[in-house]
Amino acid sequence: MISLIAALAVDRVIGMENAMPWNLPADLAWFKRNTLNKPVIMGRHTWESIGRPLPGRKNIILSSQPGTDDRVTWVKSVDEAIAACGDVPEIMVIGGGRVYEQFLPKAQKLYLTHIDAEVEGDTHFPDYEPDDWESVFSEFHDADAQNSHSYCFEILERR
């Protein structure tokens, strides 16, 4: 099963200049909980913004210009990325925008964090048809001392 995991502000903004323009430790914990011990696929820009392999996960970098870091697996196509994951129950696609666009048609599940923030962004989550998805989990949280904005975790499964 292919799943996408993303944090989205208003207007589906997911990033600005290779960074997330908010401070939500709870979302980072949600991300870790849902990706640990699963292969993660990301684009080169996302890889560069993280700066290191995510521990406890097979890191697969999709790029037309593969790098030389041998701590991760470099691939040039969506099919190659899927094959590099091996026989696993769930593959997690973690961004960025172009990689989400490439995998959305193949995805069966979306793990979304909806952030109540209007922020400037240069990267967006692809538009998706809500009628194609069923919400199977939703959990709202107010902003607090650690988390700069209110947010809602949601899991959607393709109908």
Rank of each mutant, 00 (worst) to 15 (best):
I5T: 00
A6N: 14
L8P: 00
A9W: 01
D11P: 07
V13K: 01
E17H: 01
E17R: 00
E17Q: 01
E17D: 08
N18K: 05
A19V: 02
A19S: 06
P21Q: 03
P21M: 01
N23G: 10
P25A: 02
D27E: 05
W30P: 01
R33A: 10
N34S: 09
N34L: 06
L36T: 08
K38C: 14
K38I: 11
P39W: 10
V40L: 11
W47G: 10
E48P: 04
E48A: 13
R52S: 09
R52Q: 08
R52C: 09
P55E: 08
G56M: 06
R57L: 00
I60C: 12
I61V: 05
I61T: 01
I61R: 02
L62V: 15
S63R: 06
S64Q: 14
S64G: 13
Q65M: 04
P66V: 10
G67D: 13
T68W: 07
D70A: 05
V72Q: 11
T73L: 11
W74T: 11
V78D: 13
V78H: 13
V78Y: 14
D79M: 08
C85T: 08
D87G: 10
V88T: 12
P89Y: 07
G95L: 01
R98M: 02
E101V: 06
Q108M: 06
Q108A: 07
L110S: 02
L110T: 04
L112V: 08
T113P: 00
T113V: 15
T113G: 00
H114I: 14
H114A: 15
H114C: 14
I115R: 00
D116P: 06
A117I: 10
E118V: 13
V119P: 08
E120K: 15
G121H: 01
T123Q: 02
D127Q: 13
Y128P: 07
Y128K: 13
D131V: 04
W133L: 13
S138P: 06
E139L: 08
E139S: 06
H141E: 06
D142I: 07
D144S: 09
A145C: 08
Q146W: 06
S148R: 00
H149F: 00
S150Y: 05
I155T: 06
L156R: 15
L156E: 04
L156F: 15
E157A: 09
R158E: 06
R158H: 07
